[in-house]
Design a protein around this nucleic acid. Sequence first.
RNA 1: GGGCGCAUAGUGUAGUGGAUAUCACGCUGGCCUUCUAAGCCGGCAACCGGGGUUCGAAUCCCCGUGUGCCCGCCA
Length: 584
Amino acid sequence: MKILKKIIEPTIEIIFKDYNLEFHDYKNLIQIPRDTDVCDLCIPCFSLSKILKKSPIQIAEEIASKAKKIIGEDISISSINGYVNFYSDPKWLIKKIILEKYEFFEDDPKSKILIEHTSANPNGPFHVGRARNAILGDALVRLNRDYGNSVQAEYYVDDMGKQVGILAWAIENLTKEEIEKALQREGIEELNPMWKNKEDHVRVRWYQAANILRKDNLKIESELNEMINKSEEGDTEVLNQFYNAFQPILDGMLETLSKLGIKYDSFTNESQFIIDGSVSKIMEELKSSELYGVAENGAKYLELESKGVSGKSTKFFYQRGDGSSLYATRDLAYHKWKWTKSDKLINVLGEDHRLQSKQVSIALNELKIKSPEVIFYAFIKLPEGKMSTRKGNVVFMDDLIYEAEELALEILSQRKMGIEKSQAMNIAKSVASSAIRFNILKVSPEKGFTFKWEDALSFDADSAPFIMYSHARSCSIKKKVDNLEYIENNIDLNNIELNDSISKLLRTIMRYEDSIEKSVKENKPNHFCSYMLELSAAYNAFYRDCTIINENEVNNLFFKVSEYSRKIINRGCTALGIIPLDSM
RNA sequence: GGGCGCAUAGUGUAGUGGAUAUCACGCUGGCCUUCUAAGCCGGCAACCGGGGUUCGAAUCCCCGUGUGCCCGCCA
């Protein structure tokens, strides 16, 4: 819609000047209507009514008639119910978008962004709940890249402290028999043979067992504490031991994510900030904060009551009595470091981190460091309650992907008899990963939902396969046309009648930029998901009404529009992490 | 006890001040001799309750109800 706005804005500026209105203040009145069938852009005149002392209806009429004189016939302008409506002529759209090859986001300022997402403790395989973080984060990375921003996708590896310590201790001290006995006692299911060679599934059992055994065992607890303390001091031997324990798990986790098309540009270890001394420096600097306080045993904190934090405890501890740092302290050092890498920071966090994030934000403020943008997402529950890796009450992402692939294969075998096996597998994999991603992305992040196999495996109209199918149709047309002796000739727009379907498709394409921009600015991939469904539906209607190949004759204009749509759908799929297949 | 999120057809969801509240599942009636029916066209059905602000509220404010998360010198 930017292309249309560019035409309208100067005109409206002139008209507003006649009313003695400062255009800058009222620029935002030009907006996309909620119902995009009504028009492309509109100006609601209700707020002008008071200032101009006229009825909105009268104002809309005046603006419309003035604008008509300036803008001409490419855009039809009308006034209804106090709105000025702008509706672009489809032929003008063809000329501007298709024939003159309009480039998206050409004039927008671009920035350098670091998006930190997932950062899950490397102690076990991804379950569906933890994966929401990765899927959301990766979509933000892709959307920002589509917009033109330069993005670094970052995974913060928790390579020290309790979680990893427990794992490392278990692997060092427990035999397979011991852990299986402990797990059986607690009723944790046996390892699925399908994942018996995937280390995240194998080693998580040591982690779970250690959590059971240490409950009433002081000896284990003291051994553990010793290791954890050493790791927090930056002891390289212990950190190495930790690394050896968790890295195979992390590799397994990343393998799962790569099945979903999720990759990172950089991994940063938490211990780095202990080793390079930046954590100590932060702790030193915080002493000069007005919020600084010391507990009886020498532990240090910031008192956050005056900053709007309330509850049982308003103290934000950043240093223990023994002088060691805490997770949050390291997070402060980490943020300081991140700002050296980019102009904008985005973190993706679960809603359980809301308070923590606020505390970190205030502390950063005290250190004169900017806060990051944070996108919070609610948890995915199971019908029987919260998912927990420790308790083994989870749906593994690996299982979900497997089930989705099987279902896709089954549907494919019904639809396409005699399809080659490797090709079928490739399609099934793409459908499965795209559908799983989309089913999570289409829901607004702050909304919690209950996992249901039926919904997660939905390949129906409100899903990625719907979009992929439109894309495959456009590819199929391209293939057919390529096989014909097709001669591209000039299109004479004067002698063509255009129907509603093609017009709607073009107008939907025109909103691509607005939709990406909104998703990027508000960090809400679900906006763009809705848009892609709309775009695909618009293409399907065009496909129905505008026959491109008729008895080996190619309709030049329709083919050009189809090709343009194909590229846009393809681009939009990539921006969401949906795999745009040529055939399915 | 306190804080923070969320509440829209039977179900799941879109929509953060404006035009007849979106889309899908579901239920229901139609469309394959025409470029892939994972598709298309039609029908049914909803803003948690109560106040307030506003020319105008699903949207903003207050109270209530329900629900989730958090309030560790854990990560």
